[in-house]
C-alpha cells in the first residue's frame, strides 16, 4: 500500500511548522527575559513584553486552523490526535510566553537596581526549562515519544532548584529585611520558571499521546 500525499496532510505539516515556530519564539523570549534579569537590561525586557502580542496572534491563528481542519476534514486516529495536540500545545506555549513576560516585568520593576547576590540557581533553572522546551519541540517534530519522556524527567531538577532558590532567598530576606522587596520579586521569577517546567511537562505528555495514542500523566 502506498502513501498518498494530500492537501490535508500538507496543511497538517504546515500547522506543525507553525507550532514549532511559536515554540521557538517563546523559548527565545524566555531566554531574553532571564538574561535581562541577570544584566538589569530594561530595554531587552521591554522587547520581551512587546513581543507577546505576536505570540497571542499566533496562538489564535493556530487554534483557528485546527478548528477549521477538524470541521472540514473530520480527521481520525493520528491526524485527530495531531490536531488535538496542537490545540493543547499552543495553550501551554502561550502560557510559557506569558511567564517570559512576567519575568520581563520583574526586570522593569527592579529598575536595574543591583542584585542582592549574583544569580546562580535562577539561570540554572532557566537553562533546564529551556532545554525542556527545546527537546519537546524536537520530540514534537521528530515524533519521538522516548525523547518526550526523557524531557519529563528534567522537571524533577526544576523542582529541586526551585526549592533551593526558595530556601536561599528566604534566608536572605530573614537576614536583611531591606532585601525583602527584591527577594520577593526573585521568588516570583523562580515560581514562574517552575510553572514553565510544568507546561513543558504537559507538552511532553501530549507528544506521547499524539504519537502513541497513550495518555500519560507525568506530573503525577
Amino acid at each position: 500500500m502506498s502513501m498518498r500525499p494530500s492537501p490535508f496532510h500538507d496543511q497538517l505539516e504546515s500547522l506543525q511548522q507553525d507550532v514549532l515556530k511559536m515554540g521557538t519564539i517563546v523559548e527565545q523570549a524566555l531566554d531574553q527575559a532571564v538574561r535581562a534579569l541577570a544584566t538589569g537590561d530594561i530595554e531587552a525586557a521591554q522587547r520581551v513584553i512587546a513581543g507577546d502580542d505576536e505570540l497571542d496572534r499566533m496562538e489564535i491563528a493556530i487554534e483557528q486552523t485546527c478548528l477549521t481542519l477538524i470541521a472540514l476534514h473530520q480527521p481520525l486516529a493520528g491526524d485527530l490526535r495531531m490536531l488535538g495536540t496542537a490545540l493543547k500545545l499552543v495553550t501551554d506555549i502561550e502560557r510559557i510566553g506569558d511567564h517570559a513576560v512576567d519575568i520581563a516585568k520583574v526586570v522593569v520593576r527592579l529598575d536595574a537596581e543591583p542584585l542582592i547576590k549574583p544569580l546562580i540557581d535562577i539561570p540554572e533553572m532557566a537553562a533546564v526549562v529551556r532545554r525542556m522546551i527545546r527537546e519537546c519541540l524536537s520530540a514534537y517534530v521528530r515524533r519521538d515519544p522516548a525523547l518526550a519522556r526523557e524531557v519529563m524527567g528534567l522537571d524533577d531538577q526544576v523542582d529541586h532548584l526551585y526549592s533551593q532558590v526558595f530556601r536561599d532567598l528566604l534566608a536572605q530576606m530573614i537576614e536583611s529585611p531591606d532585601k525583602t522587596r527584591q527577594g520577593a520579586y526573585l521568588l516570583l521569577v523562580a515560581q514562574y520558571l517552575e510553572r514553565v517546567g510544568d507546561h513543558a511537562t504537559n507538552f511532553g505528555e501530549w507528544i506521547v499521546y499524539m504519537v502513541t495514542g497513550e495518555r500519560v500523566d507525568l506530573n503525577a
Binding site: 502506498s2 502513501m3 498518498r4 494530500s6 496532510h9 481520525l76 486516529a77 491526524d79 485527530l80
Partner: peptide, 19 residues
C-alpha cells in the same frame, strides 16, 4: 479504534493515507 488504533493499517485507512 477511531482515536488511537493499534494497527498501522487501520491508522493509514482512517487518516486517508491509502494510495
Amino acid at each position: 479504534l477511531f482515536t488511537a488504533p493499534r494497527d498501522k493499517r487501520t491508522e493509514d485507512y482512517l487518516t486517508g493515507r491509502f494510495g
